[in-house]
Design a protein around this nucleic acid. Structure first.
Lengths: 341, 341
DNA sequence: AACTGGCACTTGGACTTTATGAGTGCTAAT
DNA sequence: ATTAGCACTCATAAAGTCCAAGTGCCAGTT
C-alpha cells in the first residue's frame, strides 16, 4: 500500500465519518473508527497534504477536517463503493406505482416515494415533449370559429390549445387537414412532426392556405411553448432541515432555487449530457444559493430512451452511494413502467 | 368613549404594533405610538383585564403582551379596518394575467403573484369539476377499438381518458352518441350532465347499448376520479422565513402540512362553508403543526359561482387587513378573467 | 369610581470572563 | 517514512454581571 493510496483511504474515511457524524473529523477519530494501520501523527501528515491539494479543509484553525466539494467529487468518482438497496427498499420500489391511473399520478407518486426513500427533496421532470412521439392529433370545432387542438404523445401527455380561427373554416377543410396531419405526424418525434406539418399548407388550395397556416402555427407554438414550460414535480421540501438550522442562510435560497424552475431545469438539463446517474456537487451548480447542496439525477424513459430526468437535492454532506442507488433504481423502475403504458 | 370600548382600542393597538414590530408590546410603547388619551398605568390595567379575558398573553412574567389566537379573532371580526390596495398593487393585479395561454398558466401565474403580493405562501386550488359546466365532449377513435374521451369544462379544464371499447364500434354509432351527449350535457353542471348521460343508453338500439354504456361509464368515472384528485398549486414557500428561525419547531411542520395535500384541502374546504373571504387562525386549524399559522382564503369563479378556493398561509402575526384585501382582490380578478375565457 | 404618578420587583437578553478539551503543527527520535 | 511528545490555538459551554423594559400595586388626585 503506497503512501498515495493510503492518503485516498484517509480521504474516504473522512468523507464517510463526516457524512455519518456531521462533525469535523480529527486524526484521533479516524484512528478509532478505521483500520488504517498507522498512527495519528501520520494521519495528520496525510491530512496536511490532502488539505494542500484542496480535498479537505478546516472550518477554523485547529479543528477537525471536512471534505471540500473537490473532495466529495473524487469520492463520488473514484472512492465510493456502490451501495445496494435493502430488501425492503427493493420491495417498496416494486410496488409504489401499483394502481397508478395516469401520467400525473405516476409522477406525483414517484416524487413522493423518492423523497421518502432518500430523505431529501425529490424532483421529477415530466416527460419531455420534444423526445416523445405523436400518438394522435385532434382538431375539434367547438363554437363557430373556435378550434381546439389536442396533441397526445406516446408517453401519455396531453396538450391542448384553443384557436380563434381567422376565417370561418369549412369543416371539410378541417377534416382534410386533420387527416393529412395524422398521416404526416403520427409516430414521429415531435420536432420532426412539427417540421412535416409546416409543409402541409402547400397541399391545399390557395384560398384555404391561410387557415391551414394558422392551425399549423398553433401546433408549432404548442410544442415550442411546452419546451419552455417543462413541468417538474417536487416533494420532500421539509427534508431541507438536514441542511442546517440557519433558515435564511442555507434553506431559504434552496427553496427559492427550487421554486424558480429555471434554475432547476438548467441543472437537470446539465445532467442530461452524461448518460448514467449524475452528481453535481456544491459550487459545481454555479448557483450561489445551492453552494452547500448536491444534486443527484438520473434519466428515465421506456427502454433506453431518455424521456426526462428525475433526482434529488440534498446537502453536499449526503450519503452519496445510498442516494445514487435509490435514484438509479427508481429511475429504472419508472422507465420500465412507462414502457408498459 | 366607554372603558369597554377603550379596552378594545388597546387590543387593536396591541395587534397592530405586534404585527408591525414582531415584538411583545408594552404599555409605554402603546402610549408613544397611539393616541389613547390615558396614561400608561391605565393601559396596564386594561391589559390586565384583556389578559384575564384571554385576548392577550405574556411570553414571560414582566414582558410586553402579544395577542392570543382569540385576540386575533376578535381583531379580524370586529376591530380591523379594511385596508385598500395601493395604486401600484391595483395596477399589478390588472395585468398579471395578461397573455396567459391556458388554465395551467392562469393558475401558476396566480399562485406566484399572490405569494409575491402578500409575502406569504400562496395556494390556488384548480377549478373543481363538480362545480363546472360542460363546454364540450369529444369522442375520438384512435386505433381500432380505442376511444379517447375528452371533456372540456367552462373553466378551461380539460380531462381526458382512454377507453378500450369492448366491441368494435361503428363510427356512425360513435357520432350519434357524441351528438346526443352534446345535446344532453353542454351547459349542464357536471353532476347533472353525468346523470343525463346515464339515461342515453335507452335511446340506442339494443345491440349498441353495451357500447354506449361503457362510454358513459368512463365519463362518470372521469368525473368521479377528479373529485378526489383535487389539485392545488403552491408558491412562496421561502416566505415561511417569517415564521421564525427555528426550522424544526415552526417551519418544518408547516411545509409538511402543505405537502400533505389532505390537510390543505380540508382547510380550504372548511372555508368553503362561508361566503366571503375567510380567516382561520392558529389553533382553529385543528392541526398542531399549523398552530402558529393563519390561513386566509377566498372563493373565485366567473360571476358568483364559486369554482374553487385560493388563499395564503402565513404566520398568525400577519397583517390581516392587507392580506385579506390582497386575497379578495386577486380572487375577484381571477374569477372575472375566467368568465371571459 | 376612574385615573395617574411613583416605586419596588422581575426577568430575559446582551455582554464578559473563564474553563475545557479536541485538535493541530512542529520537532526530535526511531 | 513513521511516531511520540509537546506547546499552542480556538470554538463552545458555563457562569457571572449588567441593564433596560416592563409589570403590579399603592397612595394620591380628579
Amino acid at each position: 500500500m503506497s503512501a498515495e493510496s493510503r492518503r485516498l483511504d484517509v480521504l474516504r474515511a473522512i468523507v464517510e465519518d463526516y457524512v455519518a457524524t456531521q462533525e469535523p473529523v480529527g486524526s484521533h477519530a479516524l484512528l478509532e473508527r478505521h483500520q488504517l494501520g498507522v498512527s495519528s501523527a501520520t494521519i495528520r501528515n496525510d491530512m496536511a497534504v490532502l488539505e494542500d491539494e484542496g480535498y479537505i479543509s478546516q472550518p477554523y484553525t485547529s479543528a477537525g477536517r471536512i471534505p471540500t466539494d473537490k473532495g466529495y467529487r473524487i469520492f463520488v468518482d473514484r472512492l465510493a463503493e456502490i451501495k445496494s438497496l435493502s430488501g425492503a427498499e427493493r420491495r417498496a420500489i416494486e410496488t409504489f406505482l401499483d394502481g397508478a391511473v395516469d401520467l400525473d399520478d405516476v409522477v406525483s407518486r414517484t416524487v413522493r416515494f423518492l423523497a421518502q426513500l432518500t430523505n431529501q427533496v425529490a424532483i421529477v421532470q415530466y416527460p419531455l415533449l420534444e423526445r416523445s412521439t405523436v400518438r394522435h392529433i385532434e382538431l375539434v370545432e367547438l363554437e363557430a370559429g373556435r378550434i381546439l387542438v389536442v396533441l397526445i404523445t406516446s408517453s401519455g401527455r396531453v396538450e391542448q390549445r384553443l384557436i380563434d380561427a381567422p376565417s370561418r373554416s369549412h369543416s371539410d377543410v378541417l377534416n382534410d387537414l386533420k387527416g393529412k396531419l395524422m398521416v404526416a405526424c403520427v409516430g414521429q418525434r415531435l420536432p420532426d412532426a412539427v417540421e412535416r406539418a409546416g409543409l402541409l399548407a402547400e397541399e391545399f388550395a390557395p384560398a384555404d392556405r391561410k387557415f391551414v397556416t394558422v392551425v399549423v402555427e398553433v401546433i408549432k407554438e404548442t410544442f415550442h411553448h411546452s419546451r419552455t414550460d417543462q413541468r417538474v414535480a417536487v416533494a420532500g421540501t421539509s427534508n431541507l432541515a438536514h441542511l442546517g438550522t440557519d433558515f435564511d442562510a442555507t434553506i431559504r435560497p434552496v427553496l427559492e432555487a427550487i421554486e424558480e424552475q429555471v434554475v432547476l431545469l438548467k441543472l437537470i438539463g446539465e445532467a442530461a449530457v452524461s448518460q448514467q446517474t449524475h452528481v453535481v456537487i456544491g459550487h459545481e451548480t454555479g448557483h450561489a444559493g445551492l453552494s452547500s447542496t448536491s444534486i443527484v439525477t438520473s434519466h428515465y424513459g421506456p427502454g433506453d430512451e431518455a424521456l426526462a430526468t428525475l433526482g434529488t437535492v440534498g446537502p453536499t454532506r449526503m450519503d452519496y452511494p445510498a442516494t445514487m442507488a435509490a435514484v438509479t433504481a427508481v429511475a429504472r423502475y419508472v422507465g420500465r413502467t412507462l414502457a408498459d403504458g
